[in-house]
Structures are given as C-alpha cells and as structure tokens.
Design a protein around this nucleic acid. Structure first.
Lengths: 337, 337
DNA sequence: CTGAAAGCGCTAACAG
DNA sequence: CTGTTAGCGCTTTCAG
C-alpha cells in the first residue's frame, strides 16, 4: 500500500480510502491510485485489515459432513442470509466425531471468524461448558443443553407426530419406526425426539406400541435398507413405516422394491427432512419438511445480533423451527401408476 | 499475550513458544504460562499470526453449489487430503453464475487463504487471464483453458465412451443421450465432452447418429425427467438412455416409472458420477464412477507444490482423473425383481 | 479532501 | 532456555 501511495503521489491513507470506496476522494486522485494499483498488481492484505479492525467479516459454519444432502441445503440458505447482512460464510467440515466439534470450538476461539454457527450432532451436554466463552456461537441441531446458549432446533417431535398421524389417517395400524430410539428422558438426539412424536401419535389413536416395531439404525440409506428387510418379517405384519430421515426412507423403499412389496398399496412409507431427491424416487416420498430456510435465517440473525452487541451478553434465545407435511405418492391410498 | 507473559513472569516470546508447542521451554515455565493463559481466558489471534507469518494454513475450496451431492463428496476428500498435509480447508459457495467465480478469484487475491482450489463450472476461457496472477490456484472441472494453469479434470469423454459401449454391448441400438450438447469444437463443458464420448461409441459400432436422440437439458433431476418423457416418444423408439449425470438419470428413471416402462427390461439406463444414492434407486443405477478421491488428491498435491514453491512458477500441470464403470441393475439384461 | 502518527498481536532473528 | 527488538500491512484518529 505504501508502494502504491508513493507511485500515485499520495499518502497510504488515501489508497486505503480508495480501496474501501470511501466517498471523500477526488475523482482525479482516485483514478491515479487505481492506476498505480493496477500497475503494481497490488492486493489488499486481509490479515492486516482484520488485525487492525478486529473483525473479519466472515461467519464460520461448522457442519459434520459435507456429503449429507441436508447440510448442503442448509449451508446454501445460511450463506444467502449471511450475505444479506454483509457477511461471508466459510464452511468447515468437523466430522461426526465429538472431538471434531470440540476442535471446531477451540479453533473458533482463534477468532478466525467473527462468529460460528455450529451444527452439532454428537456434542454432549457436558461439552456445552466450552461454549460458554464470550465468543459468539449459535448452535443448530437436535441436541438441547442445560447451559444457556443461543440455539436453533427443529420441530422434531411435532414433525414426527404429524408424519405418524398421517399414516394412521391413511389407515395404517401396524406402523414401524426405522431409525428410532428409546433414549433416556434427557436424551434428545434426532432419533429419540422423533421417536417421541411417533409414540404420541400412536397413543393419541389408542394404537398399541407393539414390541419390535421401533428399529434403531444408523441414519443413512443402508441403515434403512437392512432394517426394512428385518421389519417386514415382523410376526404381526406391518402396513406403514415412518423413517427417521429421508435417507433411511430411500433405503427402505429400496428394500421393499427388492422384495416386491408395493408402496403405497401394501405398505405406506414416510420420511423426514424433505431432501430434494425425494420427489424423484419411485414412488415419490412423502415426508416432513422442516423450515430449513427459516432455521438458517434464525441462526444467522441470532449470531449477528451477538456480533453487533444488540442483545445483552447473558440473554440467550431458543428457537424451534416449524415443519409441515409434504404428501406425495408413498403414502397415497394406492399407487397412481 | 503481553498480559499472559506479565502474569506468568516471562517474556511474550516464551508465551508464543508455549502456544506453538516449541520444544525448548522448561516444563515449569510451560506450566506457569498455561496457567496464566487459562486464568486470563487468552486466545491466540489468528489475524496477527497470519500477518506476521505471511501465511494462514488454510486452503480455500470454491464450489458452485453446496446442495449438489457430487460437491459434497469432493469436498470431503479434499478436506481429508489437505489435513494430511497440515492444511485446513474452508469451503466457499460461489454460485453457478460466472460472476460468482470471478468474484471468488478476486477475493482469493485478498489472501484470505494461502491458495485456492476452484471448481469451475461456468468459467469462460477469456476469464482465465484472471487466473494468471501469482496467487496459487488449481482449477478443477470440465473446462479447459488455453492459458497455462494447474488443472485437474475428469475423464469425461472416456467415461461416456465406456457407458455408451456398455449399453451397446447389452444390446441397445437406439440409444438416447439426455443432458448432451453438440457444442463448438473448443467447447468443452461436461455436456459437450460427454456427448463426444457417446458419439465415438456409436461410430465405433457403426450405429447411426439418429436425429433427436441427443437432448440438451439442465443437469438436474427435473431436467432428466422432462427430457425422458420427451425422448420415449421419439418416432424410432429408444432402447437405451445414457444420462449425462446421475441426477439426470434419477429424473429419467422417475419418468419411466411414471409411464410404466420397465427398466432395464424395456429400456436400459446409465448415469455418470456415482453419487451415493444411485445404489438405492429402483432399479439401482449403473453409472460411471470418476476417481473422485484421486482427483481431490491431485488437486491438493498440485496446490501444495505451488504453496511450497516445489515447482517453477511457469511450469503447469494438467491432470486427468480416471473413471470406471459401475454396473448395477439399470443395465442388467433383465430385472432381478 | 488529504496526511502523519500510532498501534492492532504476533513471531523471526538474534543476543544473552 | 529466555529475552529484546523490530516490523508484518492496515486503518483509526486527529490535524491540517
């Protein structure tokens, strides 16, 4: 910047003013400076600027796994909302291991970003103490914390309730849950929360909680496939399957296809997450669509309030995103084809 | 750091040595420093370190769209390879618009990262001049450049050749290409390159290039679906469809399902990219699997060679990744179910 | 509208 | 093994 200033015959400060588009620079001066910049191939040094300004203009988004369609959706929305507030988003993959998340928090303290949106999957309650630094963090995901913290979660239980009710309304009485889990009362990961909604719907309608119809399995396609093969052999039979995620549901549809079981005629299937490919499965997948966009917006807003000190340090917010039913062919009365 | 040093009764430099794990610090001193750090809640300031060191330890990965399964795969591999070299990866979404890519390049020059892996989709040849700064960039993607540059591309033409040959070997003679494009000779995006491989296979086997069997369409599910609906009404009939991407293929399978056309019995379908969900479609999707991992590895290696000055400034590399056939049910002789 | 001075927090280099 | 010095490149502040 010094070199540019010398070349343009101005002070470094003027170069800075030009680079930052400050208004009070005479047109002729600006032109000379820009010319000098071009001639010298000068580029602003971000590290120096950040050091001086004490901010980076970047929000970090830490997610567990790039190759999950759900995170792709979310990241896109977060980036868009942040841009609207003048922030850039950089995404970091932290892996599903707990160490990764703790790592991300530790690194975030290095102030590489102005703040962090942490999409937690495996972060245990006891780690939340780490989040209690003054560093601005918003946690997204299905885990609740006893420590106060800004948190955006999904309407998991309500969504699962809606999905299961929908199956019941369509006449299903022997409804399996693939990817569920009977956890401890304070256990609130995706599986346990969605299981609660499922059980509430059954109770509501006076349907027995038959043993063996809640299958615990990893929440991906293969988990769904193998569990579906198992569940259709349940002695009491099955006429509806609620899958804890769309990926699980895709694996389930696959298993039923392999066995020649017709969906929705023989068994109805519903998922959760509304990943895009669900419109194109055969049959297309009924599902619960969380308000991804609203949640991304909320997370960004909470973080930016923090960054700008718009909220007292010790005041935290808990936001639960909405969810709505997306009814497609896999829960139709009978197949349209 | 000064405060920590004062508290621990040492010089700032010693604090730095402790923080960075340098070996020559007495155990007692280290302990005192760590204690002071904990007491004061001190955190290293990354901006200052980067300014001083002239490096950030971060590689940027600019991709066009988070919500594409292919990019998720790639990003995961890139992150892993970079970590092996002691670099962290931050991912930036730049959108599919050309402006976005130029933007990313411009911003990259701000030296936010030590180097950039740019996965281009719409970057035109004329923009490649922008890449000719001394800033370390590796371009990935299906576009070639006349300007010299480090470039990792995919074996698109060979992959398409293999896919189409495979359909022919399975007895198809009326083979459509959905998502293809007859471009200018120097036009080398995904669609045109894959079209070339397709045409070569037809020529090889003396099969006519029937009019109307190459359909240009956006490379996503809906593009595949609507084009498939159109192509099956082709007067000459169709017995095989090569889809330019797996997403297109998923849309195609969907359209055939809607029409009650059996795959593979009536029409065989093959895709390209090997996205994970392709194993779970009904029928499962035969496809071309590019060596994603090898390409990610190559890109990281090229970039790090640059960062470390292991290669003369004016020496550039062009690496083409391999591809292999993944044969599943959608091109079987007849359905196993 | 432009400039001079000062310092953000860190670490390379070298001295003790 | 520990300390001193200096400066990375920028922008805030205040003075012209």
């Amino acid at each position: 910047m010094q070199d540019v200033a010398r070349r343009a015959g101005v002070a470094p400060m003027t170069v800075s003013n030009v680079v930052n588009g400050h208004p009070h620079v005479r047109e002729a001066t600006r032109a000379r400076v820009l010319e000098a910049i071009a001639e010298l191939g000068y580029h602003l040094n971000t590290a120096a600027r950040s050091l001086r300004q004490g901010r980076t203009g970047v929000i970090g988004l830490a997610i567990s796994d790039f190759s999950n369609a759900y995170f792709g959706l979310l990241a896109g929305f977060v980036a868009e909302r942040a841009a609207a507030h003048g922030y850039e988003v950089l995404v970091e993959q932290i892996g599903q291991r707990r160490e990764g998340e703790v790592d991300a928090i530790a690194r975030s303290r290095l102030r590489k970003f102005d703040g962090l949106i942490l999409h937690s999957t495996e972060l245990a309650d006891r780690d939340s103490a780490m989040l209690r630094s003054s560093y601005p963090i918003v946690v997204m995901g299905e885990r609740a914390y006893s420590d106060p913290i800004d948190h955006v979660s999904m309407g998991n239980e309500d969504g699962a309730l809606m999905a299961t009710r929908h199956l019941i309304e369509r006449g299903c009485r022997r409804i399996a849950l693939i990817g569920g889990r009977h956890g401890a009362p304070d256990d609130i990961d995706v599986s346990t929360q969605r299981t609660r909604g499922y059980l509430r719907a059954l109770d509501e309608h006076g349907i027995d909680r038959s043993n063996g119809l809640v299958l615990e399995t990893p929440l991906h396609c293969e988990g769904g496939r193998s569990s579906a093969h198992a569940v259709v052999e349940h002695p009491g039979g099955v006429d509806g399957i609620f899958c804890a995620t769309d990926e699980v549901a895709i694996g389930t549809l696959r298993a039923l296809y392999e066995r020649g079981i017709r969906v929705p005629n023989d068994i109805k299937v519903i998922g959760f997450d509304a990943i895009p490919v669900g419109s194109y499965t055969a049959p297309s997948l009924s599902t619960v669509e969380p308000d991804h966009e609203g949640m991304a917006d909320a997370a960004v807003r909470l973080l930016i309030e923090r960054l700008q000190g718009d909220r007292p340090e010790d005041e935290y917010r808990e936001i639960v995103g909405g969810a709505r039913l997306l009814i497609r062919e896999s829960t139709a009365v009978s197949s349209p084809f």
